[in-house]
């Protein structure tokens, strides 16, 4: 007799609570407190001497990859980046310790948000064992101290449900929209230009970009009444012009990321030669990684 084990270790999660999502007070409260968790300075212009914006991008890309490979909850990566930025705004750090900091931030964010958090050992392996679990744990304490143990930061992800539920969107589109919005948010977190933006603005801009990108706005235009941007701006009390600018910036970042991805793809294809591409290979090739960044 064959035994088939269908058991999966799915994490059990609560359903979205309409009492929290429909109540304006929750959204207003999030908007009120979000500023508290922003990094205080644009740190590349002062605090930091050894590290540069492209290094932040490298470590961010690596962190995102780790989070994705480990199937972390969506908010773990943006939250970890929030810790990283807040720490870097206060404390100068050497280039060679930046990855350690990134690992520590993921460690903390994962513990805060996940039922089964990343372990120190796993994270150290992902740094190719350039750091040891003991060091990770030691620096966890340092980072916690610097952040004053304020870990429950507001992230753009906190706003997604509040925003999309206030838009006239068909239920069947919601899943896809959410997915795209989350991707945009992750993309923003890898880019330093968004580090000082309030999370609500990034979330609102991402929702706008997602809806425009999926061309849902043209199909359902009759429902919007005002333009989509006006409606979005109202929901999170953002200025229309600022929001527009933010959304355009997100779209630009997306475009350049895709362009990079395609270049990567072409590079890999030429390396591989033109013959026989199976689907799997094609799929591999369309995976943009920042190999260029790695070879410093």
């Amino acid at each position: 007799m064959e035994l088939l084990c269908l058991e999966m270790d799915t994490s059990i999660r609560a359903r979205p609570d309409p009492n929290l999502l429909r109540d304006d007070r929750v959204l207003q409260r999030l908007l009120t407190i979000e500023e508290r968790f922003l990094p205080q300075y644009s740190y590349f212009k002062g605090v930091q001497k050894d590290i540069q914006p492209f290094m932040r991008r490298m470590v961010a890309t690596w962190m995102l990859e780790v989070c994705e490979e480990q199937k972390c909850e969506e908010e773990v990566f943006p939250l970890a980046m929030n810790y990283l930025d807040r720490f870097l705004a206060m404390e100068p750090i050497k280039k060679c310790n930046l990855q350690l900091l990134g690992a520590v931030c993921m460690f903390l964010a994962s513990k805060l948000k996940e039922t089964r958090p990343l372990t120190a050992e796993k994270l150290c392996i992902y740094t190719d064992n350039s750091i040891r679990p003991q060091e990770l744990l030691e620096w966890e304490l340092v980072v916690l101290g610097k952040l004053k143990w304020n870990l429950a930061a507001v992230t753009p992800n906190d706003f997604i449900e509040h925003i999309v539920r206030r838009l006239p969107l068909a239920d069947d589109k919601l899943v896809l929209i959410r997915k795209h919005v989350q991707t945009f948010i992750a993309l923003c977190a890898t880019d330093f230009r968004f580090a000082m933006y309030p999370p609500s603005m990034i979330a609102t801009g991402s929702v706008g970009a997602a809806i425009c990108g999926l061309q849902l706005d043209s199909a359902d235009r009759s429902q919007w009444g005002d333009s989509l941007t006006d409606l979005l701006a109202k929901i999170t009390n953002t200025e229309v012009d600022v929001l527009k600018e933010c959304q355009e910036q997100i779209e630009r970042v997306l475009e350049s990321s895709l362009r990079e991805g395609r270049q990567q793809q072409q590079q890999q294809q030429t390396q591989r030669g033109p013959s026989g591409k199976g689907l799997e290979e094609l799929d591999q090739a369309s995976t943009p990684t920042d190999v260029r960044d790695v070879n410093l």
């Binding site: 995102l64 990859e65 991707t183 890898t190 997306l254 895709l258 991805g261 995976t287 943009p288």
Partner: peptide
Amino acid sequence: VKSSAAVRLL
């Protein structure tokens, strides 16, 4: 397609 890097996108 493949969740990877900065862009697993759209």
